[in-house]
Design a protein around this nucleic acid. Structure first.
Lengths: 228, 228
DNA sequence: CCATCCTACTTAACAGTGTTAAGCGCGTCA
DNA sequence: TGACGCGCTTAACACTGTTAAGTAGGATGG
């Protein structure tokens, strides 16, 4: 019995395709990603993944420390895309004000096209203790284990600093405030729009894609333009 | 054996105090509330509650349909307080603009003083499917099972309508917009501030009470004052 | 007074969860 | 040939929410 089930796992792991497979880690990651995309963060269990790829659940622990680390690996590409997208948006505009707008738009866009990733990253990061903000990245990212701000936020702060220098906030409510604080306000304004949309779209109407995108635009304008 | 454990349950249920107890539902609710307040929404299991009050876990199901309904009962007072607090804030100011400010402040205040409730209500309502927005309230609230907007949001919309009539949004970014849409923007702006604070305060600095309160104030100003 | 019934509560169990410990088969290398 | 070690397994632990079936004890009706 043990032999037969082992054999079954083997044959499925090696795959019908012949030789190249045996990339168990890759298979786990692929199946986990599929489950995450399909059923969200809840339809995601170790045994489900293991069954689907023809291995026992404990095999996963040979490749990932625990569920959080697997989850992190699943989301890593999303995290990378998030960072790259914001960086690209920041680079796309030379005008300081327009650069902030572009960053904000990219942020909304990411949230709408990857709501599951956004959920894990910014809406309930505590539950997963993963993502660029946590020590799950220690070992992957910088060695310093003290929680540093995420790179993307640092980039936002930089963009705000440029805007401050360009006197974008002169005469607005943000005048005189710390760049970091202004960035926080900016972040909060946009997070509010998308987080509400993702958290509430089952419970309430008014959260369709277009409405949210428009609302994001308004939030950016409000954050940039409010005069005191 | 069965008799002895039954006896133990009895004696604890009836309580050392003598006669009055046997309010099992009340005991469950009290212990559940204690656990929720202490360990949050995660340190909250049926068996934990049951053990603490000296009953078996299944007894809970004689008083609550399932965990969600129990959770709802635990949060109900919080929900009521939320509604009452916003209503009081709305009633406290006669000027339309100041009324919106007061509502926003009350909202931030609730989120900061009851972060666990806020979490369950607005940050991850899907997980719990409870709260004023869901059908868990059907049977308690209005009979109509089609998801209606929560009362508090309706009240916000009313306050916005008054502000529209008072030309508060003339010359701002909100000019010409639907009152419901403006209310949504207002909500999103404040939600962003408090949700980020609650979700991220473990991962990042800059989310202390005072900073958040100040940021809420700025968000309200920004939402009210942005000129186009 | 005794038998029934009903209420309140129980235990046992199901189907799942993440995770750890121990064991087994097989290929490699000395 | 024997030892080692890698890759994977089964068994198990300690939980989770939830349901089904059973039991003790008081109230009620004949």
């Amino acid at each position: 019995m043990a032999a037969s089930s082992t054999g079954a796992a083997r044959s499925r792991a090696t795959g019908a395709s012949g030789a190249p497979s045996k990339d168990v880690r890759g298979a786990i990651l692929a199946e986990a990603t599929r489950l995450f995309r399909e059923h969200g963060v809840d339809g995601f269990s170790m045994r489900q993944i293991a069954d689907a790829i023809g291995y026992s659940a404990t095999t996963i622990y040979l490749h990932f420390k625990d569920k959080n680390h697997l989850m992190y690996a699943v989301c890593e590409s999303g995290f990378a895309e998030f960072g790259a997208s914001l960086a690209a948006a920041a680079a796309s505009e030379s005008d300081a004000r327009e650069r902030l707008r572009a960053i904000g738009r990219a942020y909304v866009d990411f949230a709408l096209t990857h709501p599951l990733h956004y959920d894990v990253m910014f809406i309930r990061p505590k539950e997963w203790a993963i993502g660029p903000l946590t020590d799950a990245r220690v070992g992957v990212g910088p060695e310093d284990p003290q929680r540093a701000d995420p790179e993307s936020f640092a980039e936002l702060v930089q963009a705000v600093e440029a805007a401050v220098s360009a006197r974008v906030f002169e005469g607005t409510i943000h005048q005189g405030a710390d760049a970091r604080e202004i960035a926080m306000r900016f972040w909060a304004a946009i997070h509010g729009v998308v987080a509400l949309a993702i958290s509430m779209n089952d419970q309430m109407r008014g959260f369709d894609h277009d409405a949210v995108r428009a609302r994001g635009e308004v939030a950016i304008d409000a954050a940039l333009g409010a005069s005191r």
